[in-house]
Amino acid sequence: MEKRVHEGGCLCGHVRYRIEGEETLAGSYCHCTMCRRATGGEYEAFVDVKKTDLDWVGVAPPSVYRSSAAATRGFCGRCGSPLFFAYDAGKGISLTVGTLDDPTVFRPIRHDGVESRLPWVRCGPGLPEEET
Protein backbone atom coordinates (compact mmCIF):
# COMPACT_ATOMS: atom_id res chain seq x y z
CA MET A 1 0.00 0.00 0.00
CA GLU A 2 1.30 3.44 -0.88
CA LYS A 3 2.36 5.68 1.98
CA ARG A 4 1.37 9.32 2.40
CA VAL A 5 3.34 12.05 4.15
CA HIS A 6 1.53 13.94 6.90
CA GLU A 7 2.96 17.00 8.62
CA GLY A 8 2.18 19.02 11.69
CA GLY A 9 3.59 21.16 14.43
CA CYS A 10 3.07 23.51 17.31
CA LEU A 11 1.32 26.88 17.40
CA CYS A 12 4.45 28.97 16.89
CA GLY A 13 6.04 26.66 14.28
CA HIS A 14 9.19 26.07 16.31
CA VAL A 15 8.55 22.31 16.59
CA ARG A 16 7.48 20.52 13.39
CA TYR A 17 7.13 16.87 12.49
CA ARG A 18 6.66 14.67 9.45
CA ILE A 19 5.15 11.20 9.46
CA GLU A 20 4.81 8.66 6.73
CA GLY A 21 1.56 6.76 7.02
CA GLU A 22 -1.66 5.63 5.49
CA GLU A 23 -4.14 7.97 3.79
CA THR A 24 -6.01 8.26 7.09
CA LEU A 25 -4.47 7.96 10.54
CA ALA A 26 -6.23 5.89 13.20
CA GLY A 27 -6.33 6.91 16.81
CA SER A 28 -8.42 7.50 19.88
CA TYR A 29 -10.23 9.93 22.09
CA CYS A 30 -8.66 9.85 25.56
CA HIS A 31 -10.86 10.97 28.44
CA CYS A 32 -8.42 10.34 31.30
CA THR A 33 -7.81 13.07 33.83
CA MET A 34 -4.12 13.34 32.92
CA CYS A 35 -4.88 14.03 29.23
CA ARG A 36 -7.54 16.58 30.15
CA ARG A 37 -5.12 18.42 32.42
CA ALA A 38 -2.21 18.17 29.96
CA THR A 39 -4.23 19.71 27.14
CA GLY A 40 -6.81 21.85 28.90
CA GLY A 41 -9.60 20.16 26.95
CA GLU A 42 -12.52 17.94 27.85
CA TYR A 43 -10.67 15.04 26.15
CA GLU A 44 -7.70 14.61 23.83
CA ALA A 45 -7.75 13.15 20.34
CA PHE A 46 -4.60 11.25 19.37
CA VAL A 47 -3.36 9.69 16.14
CA ASP A 48 -1.21 6.64 16.72
CA VAL A 49 1.93 6.22 14.61
CA LYS A 50 5.07 4.12 14.81
CA LYS A 51 8.01 5.98 16.35
CA THR A 52 10.07 4.88 13.35
CA ASP A 53 7.65 6.67 10.98
CA LEU A 54 8.07 10.02 12.77
CA ASP A 55 10.74 12.65 12.10
CA TRP A 56 11.08 15.90 14.03
CA VAL A 57 11.95 18.46 11.34
CA GLY A 58 11.44 21.85 12.99
CA VAL A 59 13.86 24.36 14.45
CA ALA A 60 14.00 22.33 17.67
CA PRO A 61 12.81 18.95 18.95
CA PRO A 62 9.94 18.92 21.44
CA SER A 63 10.52 19.40 25.13
CA VAL A 64 9.59 16.32 27.15
CA TYR A 65 7.78 15.98 30.47
CA ARG A 66 7.71 12.70 32.40
CA SER A 67 4.03 12.49 33.28
CA SER A 68 4.21 9.05 34.90
CA ALA A 69 6.67 6.28 35.66
CA ALA A 70 5.79 4.66 32.31
CA ALA A 71 5.27 7.54 29.87
CA THR A 72 6.28 10.98 28.67
CA ARG A 73 4.47 13.87 27.02
CA GLY A 74 6.00 16.18 24.47
CA PHE A 75 5.31 19.87 24.01
CA CYS A 76 6.82 22.96 22.44
CA GLY A 77 9.17 24.58 24.94
CA ARG A 78 8.50 27.94 23.31
CA CYS A 79 4.69 28.18 22.94
CA GLY A 80 3.59 25.24 25.14
CA SER A 81 1.53 23.34 22.54
CA PRO A 82 0.98 19.72 23.61
CA LEU A 83 2.36 17.44 20.87
CA PHE A 84 2.43 13.81 21.97
CA PHE A 85 2.06 11.07 24.52
CA ALA A 86 4.37 8.02 24.46
CA TYR A 87 4.85 4.97 26.63
CA ASP A 88 8.55 4.31 27.28
CA ALA A 89 8.30 0.65 26.29
CA GLY A 90 6.00 1.18 23.32
CA LYS A 91 6.88 1.20 19.63
CA GLY A 92 4.26 3.86 18.96
CA ILE A 93 3.68 7.49 19.72
CA SER A 94 0.34 9.27 20.00
CA LEU A 95 0.37 12.69 18.36
CA THR A 96 -2.26 15.27 19.24
CA VAL A 97 -4.72 15.55 16.35
CA GLY A 98 -4.94 19.33 16.65
CA THR A 99 -1.28 19.69 15.68
CA LEU A 100 -1.73 17.99 12.29
CA ASP A 101 -1.68 20.40 9.35
CA ASP A 102 -4.65 18.42 7.99
CA PRO A 103 -6.57 16.98 10.96
CA THR A 104 -9.24 15.58 8.63
CA VAL A 105 -7.00 12.51 8.15
CA PHE A 106 -7.85 11.46 11.73
CA ARG A 107 -10.04 8.35 11.98
CA PRO A 108 -11.11 7.65 15.56
CA ILE A 109 -11.34 3.94 16.36
CA ARG A 110 -11.82 3.86 20.16
CA HIS A 111 -12.28 5.73 23.42
CA ASP A 112 -9.66 5.38 26.18
CA GLY A 113 -9.97 6.33 29.84
CA VAL A 114 -13.77 6.16 29.77
CA GLU A 115 -13.97 5.88 33.55
CA SER A 116 -13.03 9.58 33.63
CA ARG A 117 -15.21 10.78 30.73
CA LEU A 118 -17.17 13.90 31.57
CA PRO A 119 -20.91 13.14 31.46
CA TRP A 120 -21.68 15.88 28.91
CA VAL A 121 -19.03 14.86 26.34
CA ARG A 122 -20.56 13.41 23.16
CA CYS A 123 -18.03 12.33 20.54
CA GLY A 124 -17.39 9.17 18.57
CA PRO A 125 -20.68 7.38 19.31
CA GLY A 126 -20.56 3.61 18.98
CA LEU A 127 -16.76 3.27 19.17
CA PRO A 128 -15.22 0.61 21.46
CA GLU A 129 -14.51 1.87 24.99
CA GLU A 130 -11.57 1.01 27.25
CA GLU A 131 -10.69 1.97 30.78
CA THR A 132 -7.22 3.25 31.60
Score class of each variant (00 low, 15 high):
43 Y>H: 08
44 E>Q: 14
47 V>Y: 06
49 V>N: 02
110 R>V: 12
75 F>R: 05
65 Y>S: 13
56 W>R: 05
95 L>K: 08
125 P>A: 10
88 D>I: 00
33 T>R: 15
66 R>E: 14
32 C>W: 10
13 G>E: 08
9 G>N: 00
97 V>L: 05
65 Y>V: 10
95 L>H: 08
64 V>G: 08
23 E>G: 06
132 T>R: 14
30 C>H: 04
5 V>N: 01
24 T>K: 12
37 R>P: 00
62 P>K: 05
116 S>V: 03
37 R>Y: 02
28 S>V: 05
28 S>R: 03
96 T>G: 05
85 F>A: 06
73 R>W: 04
82 P>A: 14
108 P>Q: 07
69 A>M: 08
110 R>Y: 13
63 S>E: 08
110 R>K: 14
102 D>N: 11
28 S>W: 00
45 A>K: 02
72 T>F: 10
123 C>I: 13
82 P>D: 08
92 G>E: 12
71 A>M: 07
8 G>H: 00
23 E>R: 11
111 H>D: 02
93 I>N: 00
32 C>G: 01
88 D>C: 00
92 G>M: 11
3 K>M: 14
20 E>P: 03
130 E>D: 13
124 G>V: 04
16 R>I: 01
47 V>A: 09
102 D>C: 08
65 Y>G: 13
73 R>D: 00
102 D>H: 10
41 G>L: 02
127 L>A: 07
74 G>K: 05
95 L>W: 02
115 E>G: 14
53 D>T: 08
124 G>C: 07
60 A>W: 10
22 E>L: 11
10 C>T: 04
19 I>D: 03
45 A>H: 00
59 V>T: 15
73 R>V: 03
90 G>S: 15
49 V>A: 06
51 K>I: 09
4 R>K: 15
12 C>V: 09
71 A>L: 06
22 E>D: 15
